[in-house]
């Protein structure tokens, strides 16, 4: 295996020089129902550059989702602090788009109204954003579906609507918690390449959680590998594969090498035998 392609970096990637998100010595401890303390996240330092696509992979219970919620300000850190744009996160940080594994579309709203939920939840006038909502839906191939109900759509289409909802107000960053985890393999590949196109065009900062190693390699600039119990950054791996990438990248030697590297880490941690 060509060792020069794969290098483990400290938090000094070229992009992190201009960091949008700074995670500084962050720990999170939950108190369980029996009063027992559960350390979800320990001593985490991470800088995410402006416009960077960063994936987090790790076994279940490694605190990936906790980290995402801490960045969004939905949870309070037990130790350390998180800064976005230089300012400490204190309470919900709303200048972002969130996407989950479940599309969370509301059955009682049409597709268009689901995208506009973004406005309704913020108490904004949704009429002003109807045009952009339609344009976004068109861009993901859902023109003509605006007045349909979510149950009339396939899983992939539903997740596209959820993505439009996240993008409606053009936030500078996207937090994605296994957004494609529930999709079938083919739909998943399509969604990945659509997401890459969108990212390439808009240069948003993306924090992406996944269980799929190849998904992480295909999409990311860097991959954060986390270990479980307590959740900790195990290693940060640069993905030096040229952009723009298309699906054929997956067959390249360098792609395979990085996938292999991540898998080895999981084997070392005893996640895969």
């Amino acid at each position: 295996m060509p060792a020069d392609i794969i290098q483990t970096s400290a938090s000094t990637s070229s992009k992190s020089a201009d960091a949008l998100i700074e995670i500084d010595g962050v720990g999170k401890t939950f108190t369980g129902q029996d009063g027992e303390n559960i350390i979800a996240l320990e001593d985490t330092d991470l800088k995410i550059g402006r416009g960077e696509f960063l994936s987090i992979v790790g076994p279940s219970g490694c605190g990936k989702s906790t980290l995402l919620n801490l960045v969004a300000g939905l949870l309070e850190t037990t130790r350390g602090e998180i800064r976005i744009d230089g300012e400490q996160v204190n309470g919900p940080y709303t200048d972002l788009g969130f996407a989950f594994q479940s599309d969370l579309l509301l059955d009682w709203r049409t597709v268009l109204r689901n995208v506009l939920l973004q406005c309704d939840m913020r108490g904004m006038d949704s009429k002003q954003h109807t045009g952009r909502a339609r344009k976004l839906l068109k861009s993901v191939g859902l023109e003509g579906f605006e007045d349909k109900r979510p149950f009339e759509l396939s899983g992939g289409m539903r997740q596209r609507v959820a993505l439009c909802r996240a993008l409606l107000l053009d936030p500078p960053m996207l937090l994605m918690d296994e957004p494609f985890g529930a999709l079938d393999a083919l739909t998943r590949e399509q969604m990945q390449s659509d997401l890459l196109d969108m990212w390439q065009e808009t240069q948003k900062t993306v924090l992406f959680i996944t269980h799929s190693i190849s998904e992480a390699v295909y999409l990311s600039d860097r991959i954060v590998v986390m270990s479980a119990r307590p959740g900790k950054v195990r290693e940060i791996i640069d993905v030096d594969i040229d952009r723009p990438r298309d699906l054929s990248v997956r067959d390249s030697a360098e792609f395979g090498a990085i996938v292999h590297r991540v898998r080895l880490l999981f084997q070392e941690m005893g996640v895969i035998h």
Binding site: N69, A72, L74, P92, Y93, T94, L96, F98, F100, S102, L104, L106, W108, L117, Q118, D120, M121, R122, G123, L175
Partner: peptide, 27 residues
């Protein structure tokens, strides 16, 4: 109600009254 939905609404800055009226009640 799906806890993730509340998470989503909070990330959009929705006060709990709005979460109740627009998400919880219709659901």
């Amino acid at each position: 109600i799906d806890p993730s939905l509340i998470q989503l609404a909070r990330s959009m800055g929705a006060p709990s009254s709005r979460v109740f009226l627009k998400l919880r009640l219709p659901g």
